[in-house]
Amino acid sequence: MPAHPVMTSEVPRAAVPRSGSGGSDFAQLTRRITAEGLLDRRPGYYAVRAGLVLAAFFGGWYALFALGNTWWQLGLAAAMSVVFAQLGLLTHDLAHRQVFDRKPPSEAGGRITANLLMGMSYGWWMNKHTRHHANPNHEERDPDVAPELLVWSKRQARNATGVARFIGRRQAYLFVPLLLLEGLNLSFNSFRALRSPVMKRPVLEGVLLVVHFVAYFGLVFTALPAGKAVAFLAVHQALLGIYLGCVFAPNHKGMLMVTPEMELDFLRRQVLTSRNVRGGPVIDSVMGGLNYQVEHHLFPSMPTPALARAARITREFCAEKGVPYCEAGLFASYREVFAHLHRTGEPIRSGD
């Protein structure tokens, strides 16, 4: 099945909110989803998933010492980048209360997986991600499309200055090299956010981050000579950034960019700005369920194993309502992302 056409910044006709006697379109869809039990918790699934991720995490550190002084450690560094990314995906599900109903265990679990094990601030990421969910792909309100290094719309390109204007000229070519630094960027922003008023538990989060990095650097430099230790850290952080970028980039990049003058109801605001990635169980595992981005944005607390069934229901519902529903294969979605980056940089290249 070919991918649907990429949305442009023009509001499609399907974006006009509609409702019938059964309430809003989203309310109608919610009733179908609820009737299937797709919002019910799946504790068994998350117990197994968390157990496997934690086993891989502690097993990796054991392997670090078991392998000893060898360049094969770089292969372990690559493997550990996958484990750290999976910790990030598990943090994501905890933050959305897919694992626990209640806020306290969700936050406690999130701080353990994010701050202590992964080295990323849960509070900083949660604040940023909540704003993204409220206004996906909104040029002014979504922090994930803020024109800091890259520009995500031609309007942003025309107004770009400084680093964003410099990078924007060739951002399609620089996107992957920049992802090599994303792991470091997460760590930097995590520590910087500790002074932010949005942080609810800055002392706790700061202590957990310090414990993480002391243990992280301590284990690596204890197990390996300095040269190999630095190489291990470089490979681990670079591939972590690549992995996370490849998971998150296809979800929204290249889809409808929302401007302040647009008026969209909740269902269309989420569906028109999101792209699903096809691929079956392997892609589901690698992307942690985020390949069902449409359904995740409509129902953020839906457990990962319910998303595939929810996608079939949502796809059929959108067809009934005439709402474009975008899904593509993994590589097709990447092509759309890079094509979008190239298009949006055009005003800078042409001097508009």
Rank of each mutant, 00 (worst) to 15 (best):
121 S>Q: 04
16 V>M: 11
205 E>Y: 02
8 T>H: 09
44 G>T: 08
188 F>Q: 12
280 G>L: 08
235 V>A: 15
181 L>P: 04
152 W>M: 05
74 L>R: 06
327 E>A: 05
140 E>Q: 10
244 L>E: 01
108 A>Q: 08
307 L>Y: 04
128 K>F: 01
11 V>G: 02
312 R>M: 14
143 P>I: 00
279 G>M: 11
179 L>V: 09
265 D>I: 10
254 G>P: 03
153 S>P: 04
80 M>A: 05
6 V>T: 12
238 A>G: 07
234 A>W: 14
34 T>R: 14
17 P>H: 05
53 V>H: 07
68 G>E: 10
209 L>E: 01
250 P>H: 02
248 F>T: 02
193 A>L: 00
93 D>A: 02
272 L>Q: 00
52 L>K: 13
117 L>N: 05
269 R>L: 15
344 T>G: 03
149 L>F: 02
232 F>Y: 13
172 A>S: 12
8 T>I: 13
197 P>K: 07
351 G>T: 12
280 G>A: 06
64 L>R: 06
118 M>H: 03
273 T>Q: 01
302 M>D: 02
165 R>D: 07
153 S>L: 03
52 L>E: 13
115 N>V: 05
30 T>D: 13
62 Y>C: 15
187 S>E: 14
321 K>L: 08
114 A>G: 01
76 L>T: 03
250 P>D: 05
88 G>T: 08
332 A>V: 09
35 A>W: 13
52 L>A: 15
281 P>N: 08
68 G>Y: 09
310 A>Q: 09
162 G>S: 12
205 E>P: 00
82 V>F: 14
323 V>N: 03
346 E>M: 10
304 T>Y: 01
255 M>F: 06
286 V>Y: 08
307 L>P: 00
275 R>G: 02
